[in-house]
């Protein structure tokens, strides 16, 4: 086995263990941390495939932002694990169906590769060229050929942000809020009045 292969199997094994940890950990914070660990390991797998842009973006977006917020929420919740485990047998068939669908999807992607599609093999060949810049290649494809789907995805994400804000925003009556512009505009003479007084003398 070559060194990259050994590394691949080592990191893949750790990844699988971490992924199992996500669903077996009793403490939700530990589960979230296992997920972070799994993300890091899959980023390393992508690095081994010389897809450094995807690897670093995975670490940046999922580890650096999404999971931080996730931990933030999980730490503040008081989750009763025993209650969460109830109804396992009831939901198990649904879970199995979803798992099978995911397996079928992965298999179809592998199957497409075996067909020898021109674009895929061209991409694989160009990766061996010296000075090949994975990030630039991805960007050029994304902003030229797939520009329209890319922009549609961006708009959908924006819509999701707006929807999340609209759904969670509540305006209660009688809530006191600060008007920052007015706070900033305040000058000392609005608040303090200096009064000149004659000193009172005892005679």
């Amino acid at each position: 086995m070559s060194i990259p292969e050994i590394l691949f199997y080592a990191f893949a094994a750790v990844l699988v263990v971490a992924a199992i940890g996500v669903i077996t950990a009793r403490n939700p914070v530990h589960a979230a941390l296992f997920l972070v660990f799994a993300f890091f390991n899959s980023a390393v797998l992508w690095l081994l495939m010389e897809a450094e842009f995807l690897a670093i973006v995975l670490a940046l977006v999922y580890v650096g932002a999404v999971m931080v917020l996730f931990l933030f929420v999980v730490m503040m919740l008081d989750i009763n694990v025993a209650q969460m485990r109830q109804g396992f047998t009831r939901y198990a068939p649904l879970g199995i169906v979803i798992a099978l669908i995911v397996v079928a999807e992965i298999a179809s992607v592998v199957w497409v590769r075996s067909l020898g599609d021109e674009e895929l093999s061209a991409a694989a060949a160009s990766a061996d060229v010296v000075g090949y810049n994975n990030t630039r290649a991805l960007g050029e494809l994304l902003y030229s050929k797939y520009l329209y789907p890319f922009e549609v995805a961006a708009v959908i994400l924006l819509l999701a942000i707006v929807a999340a804000i609209v759904l969670t925003m509540r305006r209660r009556a009688g809530m006191k809020q600060q008007d920052v512009a007015r706070q900033v505009a305040v000058r000392a003479r609005d608040r303090v009045r200096i009064v000149k007084m004659e000193a009172e003398k005892e005679t």
Binding site: E52, F53, I56, V57, L60, G64, F72, N133, N134, T135
Partner: peptide, 20 residues
């Protein structure tokens, strides 16, 4: 490395885990 900027951003955002 080619994606040096992303590497920097990714690591500086990973540092928050220690604090949390």
């Amino acid at each position: 490395i080619n994606a040096g900027v992303l590497y920097l951003l990714a690591l500086s955002s990973a540092g928050v885990y220690g604090i949390i």
